[in-house]
Each structure stands twice: as C-alpha cells, then as structure tokens.
Design a protein around this nucleic acid. Sequence first.
DNA 1: CCCTGATTCGC
DNA 2: GCGAATCAGG
Length: 158
Amino acid sequence: MPVLSPTWTDERIELLKQHFEAGLSCREIAADIGVSRNAVIGKLSRLNLTRGRTVDDRKVQDKGSAPARVRAVPRLQYEMLATIYGETDAPVVTGPIDEANRCSLLELAENRCRWPISTPGAEDFCFCGNSAPDGQSYCAGHSRLAYRPNSRARMMRG
DNA sequence: CCCTGATTCGC
DNA sequence: GCGAATCAGG
C-alpha cells in the first residue's frame, strides 16, 4: 500500500506514551515503533512527557569558560549484556523472586517470547508469550529489540 | 569505551 | 513539528 510516512500519528503517540509510562527505555520504544531513539525522545520532550529531569539550567554550553568536563570513567554494563547473552546459560529457574508475583518467566517456557508487557495499573503483568525460536528468548518481532547492532560507525568524539 | 536521557539546532 | 546532532550523566 502506497502509504506515505505517517510520521507521528495518534496510534504511534499512544504507543509511545504507553511504552514510556510502562517504564520502557527510549531504545525499546524506538525499536518497537520503528523510529530512532532521538525521534522518540524528541517527541516526548515536545509533548512535555519527560520523566523527571525537566529543563533546569543543564549547565548551558559554555565554550568560553574553563571546560570542567569530567568524561565519566570507563564503565561497562555487563549486567545488560549478561541478561541478553547469558539468558541461555543463566536461567532464573532457581530464582525465588518474590517480585515475580505476576506472570514471571517461570510461567513461560524456553520457547516462549519474554517481552515485558507492563501497563500502568495492570495487575496481571504478562509477557509476549509468542513463539520464540530455539535459543532465543524473544520472538521475531521482539528479538530485534534485544539484538544490539554494534555498527556504531560514528566517530568517537570524546 | 558504551549506553541512556534531554536539549539544541537544522530542515 | 520532526529528526539528527550535541551535550551531560552513569
């Protein structure tokens, strides 16, 4: 169908809000909708739906004074990597998660998609539960979200 | 060195 | 208004 680029329609905005309120990250929201992370964040900012950090001063770009920049320390998020990659090797079968009162992973099988369907006010926290390929923890639709293309060809300015 | 969030600028 | 670029923090 010759559908033009419907940029941001009500449906997309609704999904955006839902995912945002659901607690999902801009990365997930962007991947789910099909846009870039900046697009999602930009729309959110435009809608004044920023989570906490509002505007404030944010230091302002002072390129004339002393550049007191503290380029954060070299830190890696192995936690997330382990969560994605180590899921097949590190199951939570023996995880007495008390917070998993809702539909936890234990209810799902190994061949089931584990997509957190969190809704503000939903007591029945469920997951995607779609058919996930062997070895994968997500279905074809949500697998791309967990998949992280490290094709960062951007110049390392830092 | 990587990732997420928010603001800023260009189109 | 949208999206990429940029900045700032973790």
